[in-house]
Design a protein around this nucleic acid. Structure first.
Lengths: 233, 233
DNA sequence: TGTACATCAGTGAACGCGCGTTCACTGATGTAC
DNA sequence: TGTACATCAGTGAACGCGCGTTCACTGATGTAC
């Protein structure tokens, strides 16, 4: 009689015991080694990278689900919750990283010239380039509804604000050098920001529009407002 | 014995027969009269209006689901398919209407002045105002991923292009009047578009940012590029 | 005027899907004795 | 060196949800005779 053994939900003796190594990995999912004691944060890092990779590869913010990220890392969905409070928290962390790189890229570009006005132009070009090269990250940072992203948005905005204050400083330097007429640097900076964000997001959201050649167009857009703010003469 | 009657899923005789009129309307759903023979298109119109109303009231594009629209109209989900091929088709139709109003609003504003430059400014202000007053429609038109909206996007873009070509004409008129330096009116127009779209979408996606006063800011942004393109002297 | 029938706007129930999240659990790793 | 135990990273199964879409149907409206 097998009745007693059948209590153990049908595990026939004929089927060999599978060791962890021999188990066939489910399709599309790489088996992971369990982390060592001190290596907790390692998975957190992997999750963040996987989330960003998914964002880039699928080109779709919706594709970044807890389940998809877990699968990409080779882990089960509940594992994510060991490292992030919830989905918002994960998206939030992805944004923070993107914002940091976004700011860094502009600072680096701006540092390539000592001339304040040329530096401002370089900053603008770097801004647009970042947006076009990282469309999904750019979307998350500047094109999504505020409530659609983490409600603890404030500190994240602060990270984004870093890039903005750097822009304000750059505008101020232009004024100090007499390259722009005196005025409220914050208002001027928002003007610059509007231009670069405007063209970046239009190019992203309407790629099939019959745009003129990008480089030339972008230069015109960067120059026009600057020309308008230059001292006459 | 009740066994025979119980075959009819428990409808006790004590419960009176409900006529169509007496039926309690399900919560949040208004009972509709069935349309007469020739009145097919009436529901289509109601569906479109309900979809747009949902968009506005919830302030969330995701909230516009086939089911939600059906409920808002007071109809069952499959009914929608009598009037629209699928969800894309419905969203598409909503966009078309919004684009039409968007263009109309700008044309009307621009017609308020005979001076080409002033007319251009009025057009710009109308653009921003439309965006701020119709944030969800604006989002759908200019801030969402192309594939996220109907794949038969091309004709819709044409509707959107109407507003754009009107802008190009307005720029051309300024050049003809000597109010702007000669140049490619398309590039100039895209420059204007970038500015107004930039500030509109930034205000929409980061409402909690410490913006300066709107009116003044918008005027600065409209003026700066125009100043840059004015004949010197 | 009365009746049988065709039309077709709209229904009710179900399909399969992927989602975020929870819960009790497992089992390898490290530690105390 | 050996053994019992605590820790805790990660699992497996399930929850309830809302989604777009389909299908066979109902029944009021209009029409032909």
């Amino acid at each position: 009689m097998d009745s007693l053994r059948l209590g153990w939900e049908s595990s026939p003796v004929s089927e060999p015991l599978q060791t962890d190594e021999q188990v066939a990995t489910p399709p599309g999912r790489a088996r992971r080694r369990r982390a060592r004691r001190g290596e907790g944060p390692a998975l957190r890092e992997e999750i963040l990278q996987a989330a960003e990779r998914l964002l880039i590869e699928t080109g779709d913010q919706e594709a970044v689900s807890i389940r998809a990220v877990a699968q990409a890392v080779g882990v089960t969905p509940p594992s994510i919750y060991l490292h992030f409070a919830d989905k918002n928290d994960l998206v939030f962390a992805v944004c923070e990283r993107a914002f940091a790189r976004f700011d860094a890229v502009q600072e680096e570009a701006a540092a390539q010239s000592d001339d304040p006005l040329e530096s401002l132009m370089l900053r603008g070009r770097a801004y647009v380039r970042f947006g076009l090269e990282n469309p999904e990250q750019y979307r998350i940072l500047f094109m999504t509804r505020p409530s659609g992203t983490p409600h603890s948005w404030t500190p994240e905005t602060i990270a984004g604000i870093a890039a903005f204050w750097h822009l304000v400083e750059a505008v101020q330097r232009c004024m100090d050098a007499g390259a722009l007429t005196q005025g409220d640097p914050v208002v001027y900076a928002i003007g610059c920001w509007s231009s670069v964000h405007g063209i970046t997001s239009l190019l992203l959201s309407h790629p099939q529009f019959p745009w003129p050649e990008h480089e030339e167009l972008i230069d015109h857009i960067l120059l026009a407002p600057i020309e308008g703010l230059r001292p006459k003469g």
